[in-house]
Amino acid sequence: MARAFDEECTAWVRATATLTAHQFTLPTPCPPWTVAELIAHVTAAIARVPDGLAAPPPARANLDAAGYYHPRIFDATANAARVSAAQDAAAAHPNTAALVAAFDHQRRRALRAIAGQPPERLLVTRWGDGMTLREFLLTRVVELALHGLDLANALSAPAWTTPAAAAAVTDFLGAGTAATRLGWDRTTTLAKASGRAPLTADEQSELARARIPWHQFG
């Protein structure tokens, strides 16, 4: 999972390094966020890796990656806090280069923090739950890959999802078999299975057969 995290972060740096000031103001499929605010949101998500590892580990893990996306992460209070935090973080940077540099800084912090750590190392999430590093990194890969699709959509650019991240998130969504049956490529699989693209009636039936919930992740 560390490799998928590293490669997807690196892809984000490459994709955002040459954006213009105008592109940072474009709306995204995650309203009310602009491109700049979505980047700030994902930057904060990456920062939680080193921050979580810096704290004393909990006594046990009581949550996996799927459980991390529990209802309170999407409730009205949590969503309002998430939206305003990203807006404030984006506004705090003097220019777009500084915002991209902040993402890269947190990427480097995270990679230093996980270097040499066993996958079963425990950490505490922002919600106070105990998770293994492997499972928490999976949630970060989910954030990077799916919000990467959102960012590419906002920029009218090709998706840059890396093979390792796409495989990890496809497995997380339980969409591999359905994708094979439906002939989806990896970008279509992530977009359809995460609720980022509409489904045909046949696709809905196939996902229902595979017991894949159709809702927004990331």
Rank of each mutant, 00 (worst) to 15 (best):
A159R: 13
L199R: 06
A45Q: 12
T25D: 14
A166C: 01
N79W: 07
V141K: 04
H215L: 08
L146M: 06
W12C: 09
D150E: 13
T177Q: 14
P29L: 04
L111T: 05
G174W: 10
H70T: 05
A17Q: 12
T25M: 05
P32Q: 06
A55P: 00
V100S: 12
P71M: 08
R121T: 14
R186P: 13
R107V: 01
A97P: 02
A154W: 09
P58W: 01
P118G: 08
G218S: 04
M131S: 02
M131G: 02
E135I: 00
F103T: 13
S205Y: 09
R3I: 06
L199F: 02
D150W: 11
S84H: 09
L190N: 04
P57C: 04
R112F: 00
A36G: 09
T34W: 01
T132A: 01
A191F: 05
S156H: 15
T34S: 15
A145S: 15
L173H: 10
P71E: 14
D104R: 11
D185W: 14
A159D: 14
Q106C: 03
N79C: 04
A154N: 01
V13C: 13
A54M: 10
A191T: 02
D64E: 08
H93Y: 06
E37K: 03
A86M: 10
T34C: 06
A92V: 01
I39V: 15
M131H: 07
Q216N: 09
P94V: 13
A17S: 15
C9H: 03
F136M: 02
Q23A: 11
Q117W: 01
R48W: 05
A21G: 06
A47G: 14
R186D: 15
A102R: 10
R140G: 03
A208S: 14
V141W: 03
A40P: 04
E206T: 13
L155N: 05
L38V: 12
A159T: 15
R48D: 15
G195L: 06
V169T: 11
V83D: 09
S205I: 14
A102N: 12
L199M: 10
A164N: 09
I46Y: 02
R109Q: 14
Q216D: 08
L123N: 07
R181M: 06
L173N: 10
I212H: 12
A66R: 12
T20K: 05
A115V: 06
P118L: 04
A17R: 15
A152Y: 06
